[in-house]
Design a binder for these strands. Structure first.
Lengths: 348, 348
DNA sequence: CTGTTAGCGCCTTCAA
DNA sequence: TTGAAGGCGCTAACAG
């Protein structure tokens, strides 16, 4: 709203009666400046409402203090949490965040990547789209800025990554259900091509195997990650004559479909059926009974992603230039017990 | 990961055997270039993986093609929807979005505003923090870039704004409940200092008044917008000997607290009590029975906000320079009927 | 149609 | 301790 162009460093210098170099040194606290001049410069800058022109500074310095944040699906509440935390941490570290949502569309992802390149973002945090796994990784591996993959890894891609330990996640769910005495347990797992879903299933299977229990294959429902698929899978499971006593839904969309099916069928949770899901769903505490879930450590993941990225950035322009190998961190999930799971003997 | 610095326009020119001006004209489709050269330039740029340096371009052209998006609270699902839509539309229009979350903290808001100024964002879309209403608008009114206020207006601030018609929102809720025969209705309204809450209440009151019904003041619960407050207010309302037959929660946090209280008290919805809330809560269709809500037109609001802002931007550097008065658009909410409201006679 | 050139605002030598 | 000057990559005005 204020009129005209913004003041430049030159105008500040003029008003303070010094050279632009002195202004620069003063405002950036680089180099020695006498007390008197420092004062005059500060006042002048204040009076003019001077704000350094980031583009000019970047052009000169080679760094933009911008991070790209490329998210596979903003509507996913788990990713949203990551976004919140990443924005907060980046901002606190003095970086601006350019937000890009690829909405699980590899084309949008690629366009956004090109844009981030043009903007010369100092680094990028990427939750890649699912479909980019099949060879579409070129754009990512060619990323000329330090990049960190979050939540989803891409095998064979030489990038730092921070993910949940999904094997452990499955195992935690298994141990909980096993401890409650469940033996006939089902899994709604989404797409078996998805590494995360596979890991969660493998961990779940391993957890039961460690206690000598083998999962029935017919109780493992594979399809895709939509709520619709979860709903359909749940209906199938519930129609079996020997119904499972517990169901593990490996993803929040699937859990939603599962709950819908349960509601429609008039099944009582946890009396007739125990249910365990993944992620701290925003409504996990709201539905009656509260959902028992295995949560991913979103805050720790965000922290690790940002710190890893910032280290790379300060380590050198190119991601791998400083000789450090790529790091691939897996953080531990946790069990949150609420009302949707119960000991099996309470059942009949 | 690729080594070394990125190619500049000069290198493209060299490889194509032309001048930098020709490269610039070709790539920007500005000015005439012969077919042969166009081809050579395109190929050279492609081969080098050239991406124009946004900072350099901005410095020269005065425009950054960056929009600031300053959100009062990312965790609010309604704001998230706005963010999603705004990102999508901006990106489609060729703008990058710098996301800032002020988390209802005016200090963070102000810092972010300063950062956007330094970045020389071409414009900003702002959902202001609540507390900034009391005089803290200086930073906003001094915004040296075109800005659009979204969802929350600030009286006396000369900025474009796009909001929901909250009077109409309250009225829609009232008409729906009235049509179902409810007369003893309650409102959990949040803070009366908040303009939005006041408007919703006023509209609600007016809607009933138009049918000759006057709201009982003791049934209008005012406090703040937290889930806790909603919970407490709900408990108070439900403890009255003459219980309300319907409750209107003016905000999604309040609705959450209300639902929790209802669950604890073992009250049946909609048999014992009709409930109507605001916004398309992500779980609105999930809880049994589905929540009847008055929704804000988030997509239309995002569209209007972006288009208004882009018009301002193309209209001139300073927001009001092109002589156009500030526009203040109010978009219409809509009623979505689900299972949480029912005719009163079904009650006993 | 194509090339040459002057800055956009800033930081950083280098000289005083 | 302070000032003068060059140049980051690009676009636009001007010259050929």
């Amino acid at each position: 709203m204020s009129a005209g162009p913004l003041p430049t460093i030159r105008e500040v210098a003029q008003l303070a009666g010094v050279s632009v170099a002195t202004v620069s040194k003063t405002l950036n606290r680089t180099g020695k400046v006498s007390e008197g001049l420092r004062e005059r410069v500060t006042v002048a800058a204040q009076k003019l409402g001077y704000a350094p022109h980031a583009s000019a500074r970047s052009l000169r310095s080679g760094a933009t203090r911008i991070l790209g944040l490329l998210v596979a699906d903003l509507a996913n509440p788990y990713f949203l949490k990551l976004v919140e935390n990443i924005e907060r941490l980046s901002s606190a570290a003095g970086y601006s965040v350019i937000l890009c949502n690829s909405a699980e569309d590899p084309e949008r992802e690629e366009r956004h990547l090109g844009m981030l390149l043009s903007q010369r973002a100092d680094g990028a945090i990427v939750i890649p789209t699912r479909r980019s796994w099949n060879g579409r990784m070129a754009a990512l591996s060619g990323l000329p800025v330090p990049g960190v993959l979050v939540d989803r890894r891409i095998e064979g891609l030489d990038l730092d990554s921070v993910t949940t330990d999904n094997l452990m996640l499955g195992r935690l769910a298994a141990e909980h259900l096993d401890g409650l005495g469940h033996r006939r347990v089902a899994v709604i797992m989404g797409s078996p091509e998805h590494q995360i879903a596979r890991h969660r299933l493998d961990g779940f299977r391993a957890g039961f195997a460690a206690r000598g229990v083998t999962l029935e294959e017919r109780l493992i429902q594979k399809d895709n990650f939509s709520e619709e698929a979860g709903h359909a899978a749940a209906l199938r499971l519930l129609s079996f004559s020997e119904r499972p006593t517990a169901i593990f839904a490996t993803n929040n969309h699937l859990a939603l479909g599962l709950l819908r099916a349960i509601g429609e069928q008039g099944i009582s949770v946890p009396e007739d059926l125990s249910v365990i899901a993944v992620d701290e769903l925003p409504w996990a505490g709201l539905v009656r009974p509260g959902m028992t879930v295995v949560t991913q450590p979103s805050e720790a993941i965000a922290e690790m992603a940002v710190s890893t990225l910032l280290e790379r950035i300060s380590g050198g322009r190119s991601s791998l230039k400083n000789g450090r190998d790529t790091v691939s961190v897996q953080l531990q999930p946790a069990l949150v017990v609420r009302g949707s799971t119960a000991a099996i003997r309470s059942r009949r």
